[in-house]
Structure formats: C-alpha cells, structure tokens
Design a protein around this nucleic acid. Structure first.
Length: 887
RNA sequence: GGGCGCGUAGCUCAGUUGGUUAGAGCGCCUGCUUCACACGCAGGAGGUCCGGAGUUCGAGUCUCCGCGCGCCCACCA
C-alpha cells in the first residue's frame, strides 16, 4: 500500500463527499432504539452561495453530528433552503429588467413562473456546496420553505394564530421601503448615523400680523403634511397660543395647536410640528388628538397630489425646493448642523419612510412571555450565557411584528375578501369559500414575512400539523447552532411560534456563534473585496484544513479571524497526518506484512511483545494517552468547546503521536519481521487516532481509515459509523506515562546540551542523532536503563568535542556531565544562574504558602499536596544547580 | 439614552469552579537534506496578563473606578 508523498485533498475529497451522499449514510431512522439527536440546519437563501460563515457553522455542526453518530445516537441533521422573499424577488426582478421585462407588465403569475424557473436553474447551488464540504446532512429530508408541506404548515399556523386572536390587520404606521415597495418589520431597518441639518422654520400665527413660532425639524419636506403644532402644557413661552391657530406656510392650511407633555420643552424651540402621516410619534399624537392624516408621499417616496406644486418631486428634491421657497419668504429662522440616525432598509439601502398602511401584525406579548419562561427555566438553554441577556432584553421590550409584505414571492396570506370587504381567514380557498357561503372571493395580495415561515421550521419540516413519526421522534430539536445576527430574526421567532404551536420550545440547547472576519478583523463582504471563498480554499488546502482553521481559533461565541495563511497552516497538519500514515504503510511493507486483519478494533488493548512477553512501554503509554485524549475530546465536544477539542487533537497527534510514539516505535521495527504484536499495537493505535480525529477532519480520516482497515473483518462501511473512542479509566497507565515523561525529559536535556554547546548533530564518533527516534535508536531495551544508556551514548559522543571545562545537566532522575570550553561554560553558568533565580523565587513562594495557616486551613488538600510536591522538586533542582555552579 | 462584550508574547487567540515558574498557532533567532513529512526535525528568544484601587492566605481569573475598542437595541422633533 502506498500513499502519495504530499497530501492532496482534491484527489480524494470529492469522491468521499459524493459517496457519503450516494450511500445515504446519514439518513436518520424514524424508528430506532437509539437515543435521538436532532438539529435543523438554518436554511440558507436559495439565492445564496456558500461563504465562510456557513462553513464555520457547518464545521461546528458536523463535528457534533458526526461525533453523536459515532457515539451511537440516531442523528437527524435536516437541511433546507429558504425562499428569501425580498432578496430573491429583487434578484429576479433585476435579472428580468436586464432582459427588458418589467414585473408589473407581465403580472403576478407570470412573474412567479420566472422566479420558479430561476430557482430551479440557479437556486440550490449552495446545496451542492454543502455536500462538497462534507456536511453530513440527511438529504432525504431536505426541505424548501415553499414546499407544499411547509406551505401548508404556514397557513395552518396563520389560521391558528388568527383564531386565538394573536393576529390582527389594521392601518398603522410601518417602515416603508421605497426601493422594494413593501413594508418592513422593525428588525429589517438598520439605523445609521447621518450628518444632516436641523431646520428652524417660522410658522406664522394666524391673524397676528408678523408674529410666528419657530419649529425645528430634520425633515422640512414633511411640512406639506403638517396638521398641527404641539407644545408642552406647562411651557410658559407658549401659553399665548391657546385658542390660536398657525398658518402652514406654502400650503396655507390652518394648524391646531395641541398641548401635550410628550413634547420636550428643552429640545429645539420647545414647539414641534406634527405630521401624523410621516412620523411615528406624530402618528401617535394624531391618534390621540384626532388629527387629520395627510399623506404627501407616493410609494416611491415622491411627493403626491397632496403636495400641490411639489407633486412629482423626489422627497430630497422637494426638501431642497421647499427650503429654498421658505428662504425666499424669510421663513427660515436658522439652519444648524445636526447628526441624527436614519433608518434604512436592510435590503434596498434606501431611507425607510414611516407610512400609514393596512398591514397584518402578530401580537407578540403573549408569545414572548412563555418564550422568556422557557429560557429562564432552562428548558431551552442559550449558550454562551451572555446571549441570554440579549434575548431577554429583546423579549421584554418586544413590539408587534408586522408580517405582511407587499411582494409576490412568498407565502400568500391566507385571507380572502368578498367584494364588500368581508374577510375570511382560512387554511385554503375551499375553506374560505365555505365560510363565505360561496360568495366570490379575492385572496389577500400580500405575502408573509420570510421569517414567518422560517419561524415554523423546527416542526414544519417534520410534517406538522400532522402527527408524524418524525415529529414525535425529533421535536424538540436537541440543538440549534446559529449566528447572533439572526438571534432576534429567527431564534426568537422560532421560540415564540414553537411554543405557540407545539407547546414546547423548539430546542433544548441553542448555541450562538460569532462572525468570520478577515485578517484585519473586518467583516467579510463582497463590496469590500475581502471575502475568502470557501470552495476555493477547499480546493486548494482541503476541507479539513478549512475546518480546523475555523474551529480551532474560536472560543465560544467569539468571532473568527481568518486568513489564507491560517488555513495553509492547518493544511500542514493534515499533511502531517498523511505522512504519519505514509510511514505506517511503508514500514508495514518493509516488515513484509501486507495485510492486517484485526477482529475487534473497538476493544483492542495493547498486546505483549512476543519477544519479551511484556507490553512495550511505548504502546502502554500511547494507549493510555489515547484514552486521556478521548476523555478530553468527548467532554469538549459535548460542551461545544470545539476549539479545545481541535487544539487538543492537534497537539496530541503532532506532539505525542508523531514526535514521540512513532519515533519510539521505530526502534522496535526490523525488516521482514512479519506482523508482530508491536506492529499490531501501532496499527490499532493509529486506527484509534483516526477515529478520534474523524469528526474534525472527516475527509482525510475516511480516506486513510478505509485504506488502513481494508481487510478488517466486520468493520463498519464508513469511519463515520465506527464507534467513537470512549475513555476507560482502566486504560490509563500512570506508570507508563511517568516513565515516558522521564524519558522525554532526559532526551530533551541531552538535546538541549547538544544545541547549547554547538555539538554537530552528526558527530563522527557516534553518529548522533537528530530526531527522537534517532536519539533512542541506539538504545535497545526499555525505559530506565535506556535512559542511562542514552546519557552514556551522548556523553561519549560529546567528549571528543568538549575537551575542557565541565558542566552538568540535571533532570529529575539523571545527571549528565560533560566537559566544556570556557566560553560555553560561562554561558551555561549564566543560564543556570537565571534558572536558579526563578526557582528560588518559586520556592520562596511555596514555602510562604506552606507556612501560612490561613492557607492550610482553607485550601483544598490537593492544592496543598501539589505545592509540597513542587517545593521538593524546586529544592532538589536548586541544590543541583548550586552544586554545579560551585563545582 | 439603555444593554452586552473585549483589552494576555510581534500578530491571531486559548486560559472551564480564584491555586502558585501564564499556554498554542503563526512569525522571529540558531542548527540540521535525517531512509513518513523542509507542508519537516531539533533547540531557543519573547509576556509588570490596559492602568489604578479593593476583596482574599492566594487574582490573568472576583468587585469598583479610569483609559482604549467593538457590538446590539431605542420613535426624541
């Protein structure tokens, strides 16, 4: 068996990606005795392409899912796509426009045909990308938010909310996007600081010659819709306005003066113009005081017929014009610079226009309460903890949710109207007709907010409202992994709707992750051009490297700073794994043992050497270490500490498995030895290491494991279903671990001396020794005497090069003495002196602690014991160093 | 205006309930073509854990104040 010299993931990753899907390996069982573990993937937009954020999320999810599966759970990872109402409609509109087609000309039905065609052609590209990076989803259960089943759930939920009085329709002020021509929810509005002005306008008091009041506004154009001015009732300055009216300049309308304490007398002039049609506060004031609502804007935010001579002007043009006209009339009191926040549409980027219109709203208060309770009680856990507070904060201050959108692409609102305006909310048209007694009906033109259907995702995907076996088995979901950016948009809505429809919160645990940023910590975005394309990276460095790079640097909830360099760094790790296996296969050939047919890999324990009748130390040690690592990794993945799991495996595999275990094992191997127990131990250890690595690096481990276990009787078809190594305390071998640590310490000591004294690594006398195996190669037996020999070998080698002076290196158990030239001796002395200082400081600290009664009384036994142990260690080291320095 | 978070080696970050010489990767320096791997091996330098005060036997870890940075929510004209 032979591997290519260099690890080239693109040669095998696509093969496994396809195989995993084709073999339907990750299809969840509906009827299973195993414990279930379920998760819905946040459905990406059909229009979407895979970005690093997806990769990061998929990496964490896939680690968890593969680990669960290997640990024996019946795992469901349900993938899907979101129709993404506004985004998709905008995209297709733009696409059609480039062909000279206007959606309004072709009409709703034709347009929707185009969207579906577009969706079939370009949509779902991201699904292939998910598959390519090895997301172990159950593709047999893939859903789309506009699927008939999911759509049925949408209508069902709508009707149920309506029947419970949690849905209402009415004319209220909403955020209107003049770009996409639809209402938006509050969450879809992004507030941006903008430099502007505060215009102080003179409004003449009717009938009192030349007298005026000054109102301050950031939007002078809205004056066309003013129907009142307001002052604080206690404001002495404006007492004289009782019984007066104001004449609105340019328009001539008589404005009432209202007195209300919502006015802040401190701000501006203490008098405010009221435009009920174009400002939320003013709208409320208008409701309260029965003011006329005069809408002056069209859908596109141009001045309408109510704006008189300004009709047809864009809102900003109108502003200019109106200011100029007022100026000409001497009605501009002053203009101040002013910074205020402008709400912009998340989608079109245009400033949102507050607008009164007929919309559907969900009453959220009674939905939020149990959602708060679910998290407070711990029935639904939010991690990391800090996000709980954000969640609570939002839920406590929740406002009604505008769910209607003036779009065509989406779930059409299941409400029907007769000609005279009677309304029927029903599951389908047939039901509506029944209710109307057969009177002709017209369905509501609007569609639902995309987040309404996504809000039902945890159960709409499982067949709800039918009581399906899937729903029974998999709801509530065990886990949700998603980004903080959609905590309110999605997680909060799913929780509210989940509890409302299913009486149970949709998840047991919600893990919130951070953002993937570029090397300068900037958000990745196409416009900035700092996007690192995951597929490109995958082709270049391998999926496993991309995963490791993403996962290993992110503490819980924190952002990931990603660079190509970093990914390349983890490709070297994959290369290391590859070459370790390459060594195994090559040596196996050399040993003349072509096949390996172990019976039981799961319960393999290290075998005694045929030669000595004892289990070789290196193997005892490795199996003990494998067990320790298994314990750590299991715990870390369980607790969603993926970065710890990744780093632990990285350190283990590189520093322990490769640097020490393989090197130590080299000593035992001889050509044509056949498949000795030494060999079997190593093969089994390697196999176990691959299992441990699989959830984090699925591709390379599958590739290597398939080759390694090709002749293994009764092995699972894929590494993905081999059992995950569980820690067994009986496997821990403290004696072996201690002995190897001594070996390591001594070896390091020898190398240290060698380096410090500039002894050529390849000493002609003895042929010293570079790698650990080389250092130890000339030593045949195990452990303690190996060390003594090692020291002797090194010493004898050194002597020829160090004719004068004398220095000593100490380890806990061995002393190495060698002769040194004066110059080097001095350098060494300096180093030892520094070490001595550090040790004495540490020892003093320890002594102080041990002499402290308060400490002895309060500190736990184990801490005291470890300090005592350390102190002994310090003292013996100090003694030896002192002896050396004096001698 | 309200809320959340961050500041640890040159860079990016770990550091779980406070426990005694503070870790990793990358980068840097030195030496090595060594029969798995130069995408490598061996050795090394580098930190008053933002500043100050406090709690404690003990603080990177807890509390308060200050400085610097980031994010979220909010209708002040």
């Amino acid at each position: 068996m032979e591997l290519d010299k260099i690890y080239e993931p693109r040669l095998f990753e696509p093969k496994w990606a396809k195989w995993w899907v084709d073999e339907k390996l990750f299809v969840a069982e509906t009827d299973s005795d195993k414990p279930t573990y379920s998760l819905i993937a946040p459905p990406p937009n059909v229009t979407g392409a895979l970005h690093m954020g997806h990769c990061f999320e998929i990496a964490m999810t896939d680690i968890t899912m593969r680990w669960r599966r290997m640990s024996g759970d019946n795992v469901l990872w349900l993938p899907g796509l979101d129709h993404a109402g506004i985004a998709t409609q905008m995209l297709v509109e733009r696409h059609l426009k480039s062909q000279g087609i206007d959606r309004r000309e072709i009409g709703r039905e034709k347009f929707l045909e185009h969207v579906w065609t577009w969706k079939e052609e370009y949509g779902g590209k991201i699904v292939d990308q998910f598959k390519r990076i090895g997301a172990s989803c159950d593709w047999s259960r893939q859903r789309f938010t506009m699927d008939p089943g999911v759509s049925r759930a949408v209508n069902e939920a709508f009707v149920r909310l309506y029947e419970r009085g949690l849905l209402y329709r009415g004319e209220y002020m909403v955020n209107w996007d003049p770009g996409t021509l639809t209402a938006l929810s509050d969450l879809e509005v992004v507030h941006e600081e903008q430099k502007g002005h505060l215009w102080h306008l003179r409004y003449p008091i009717t009938g009192s010659d030349g007298e005026y009041v000054v109102v301050a506004t950031t939007r002078p154009e809205t004056m066309l819709g003013d129907t009142a001015v307001a002052v604080h009732p206690d404001d002495e300055r404006y007492k004289h306005l009782v019984d007066k009216t104001i004449t609105l300049p340019l328009v001539g309308r008589e404005l009432k003066v209202i007195f209300d304490d919502f006015v802040d007398p401190e701000f501006g002039t203490g008098i405010v113009k009221i435009t009920p049609a174009h400002d939320p506060n003013d709208f409320a004031a208008g409701q309260k005081h029965g003011l006329e609502i005069i809408n002056i804007l069209t859908d596109e935010a141009k001045i309408n017929a109510n704006g008189g001579k300004y009709e047809g002007l864009d809102r900003y043009e109108a502003r200019k014009q109106i200011v100029a006209d007022l100026e000409a009339l001497g009605l501009i009191d002053k203009i101040e610079d002013y910074v205020n926040k402008v709400g912009k549409s998340q989608r079109s980027g245009l400033a949102v226009e507050p607008r009164v219109s007929m919309q559907w709203f969900i009453k959220t208060k009674s939905l939020a309460e149990p959602s708060i309770e679910a998290v407070e009680s711990g029935r639904m856990e939010i991690m990391p903890e800090q996000w709980r507070r954000n969640y609570f904060e939002w839920m406590h201050n929740i406002r009604d949710w505008c769910v209607s959108r003036q779009l065509w692409w989406g779930h059409r609102i299941p409400a029907w109207y007769t000609e005279d305006g009677e309304m029927f909310v029903a599951r389908n048209e047939e039901d509506a007709l029944k209710q109307s007694g057969g009177r002709p009906l017209r369905q509501d033109d609007d569609v639902l907010d995309t987040w309404f259907s996504s809000g039902l995702w945890p159960f709409s995907t499982m067949g709800w409202p039918d009581e399906t076996p899937d729903l029974k088995a998999f709801y509530p979901n065990s886990l949700l992994i998603t980004g903080f950016d959609i905590l309110f948009f999605w997680v909060a809505r799913m929780t509210m709707l989940g509890i409302a429809m299913m009486d149970e919160p949709p998840f047991r645990k919600v893990l919130i992750h951070g953002l993937v940023r570029d090397a300068d910590k900037k958000k990745m975005s196409k416009t900035k051009g700092n996007v690192i394309d995951p597929i490109e990276m995958t082709e270049k460095y391998g999926t496993d490297a991309v995963r490791f790079a993403l996962v290993s640097s992110a503490g819980q909830g924190s952002d990931v700073v990603l660079s190509e360099e970093r990914i390349a760094g983890y490709a070297t790790f994959a290369n290391k794994i590859w070459n370790a296996m390459r060594f195994v296969f090559m040596s196996l050939d050399r040993a003349g043992a072509e096949t390996w047919t172990p019976e039981d890999l799961d319960n393999f324990e290290a075998l005694p050497s045929e030669a000595t009748g004892e289990v070789p130390l290196a193997d005892r040690w490795m199996f003990s270490r494998l067990d320790a690592v298994a314990a750590g990794v299991n715990e870390n993945i369980e607790k969603n500490r993926y970065h710890d799991a990744a780093n632990q495996l990285y350190q283990f595999f590189w520093k322990e498995f490769c640097d020490w275990y393989i090197e130590l094992k080299k000593i035992d191997f001889t050509d044509d030895s056949g498949l000795t127990n030494e060999w079997k131990n190593m093969l089994a250890a390697t196999e176990r290491a691959l299992r441990l690595l699989h959830p984090l690096a699925p591709f390379i481990t599958e590739e290597l494991w398939q080759r390694l276990t090709v002749n293994t009787a009764g092995r699972t078809k894929s590494l993905a279903f081999a059992s995950y190594p569980q820690a067994k305390s009986s496997r821990r071998d403290a004696d072996a671990e201690h002995r190897v640590s001594v070996l390591q310490e001594a070896t390091t000591g020898v190398r240290n001396l060698r380096a410090e004294m500039n002894i050529p690594p390849r000493n002609p006398l003895t042929g010293i020794l570079y790698s650990p195996s080389a250092d130890v190669r000339s030593v045949t037996s195990d452990q303690a005497d190996a060390l003594a020999r090692l020291a002797c070998v090194t010493l004898s080698a050194v002597e020829g090069h160090a004719p004068e002076g004398k220095a000593t290196h100490h380890t806990a158990e061995f002393d190495l003495e060698i002769e040194l030239p004066e110059e080097q001796k001095q350098a060494l002395k300096k180093k030892l002196a520094k070490q001595l200082g550090q040790l004495e400081k540490a020892a003093t600290g320890s002594r102080k602690q041990l002499g402290n009664e308060a400490f002895l009384a309060k500190a736990p036994e184990s801490v005291v014991a470890s300090i005592k142990e350390k102190l002994t260690d310090y003292e013996s080291q100090i003694k030896r160093i002192k002896a050396t320095l004096e001698g």
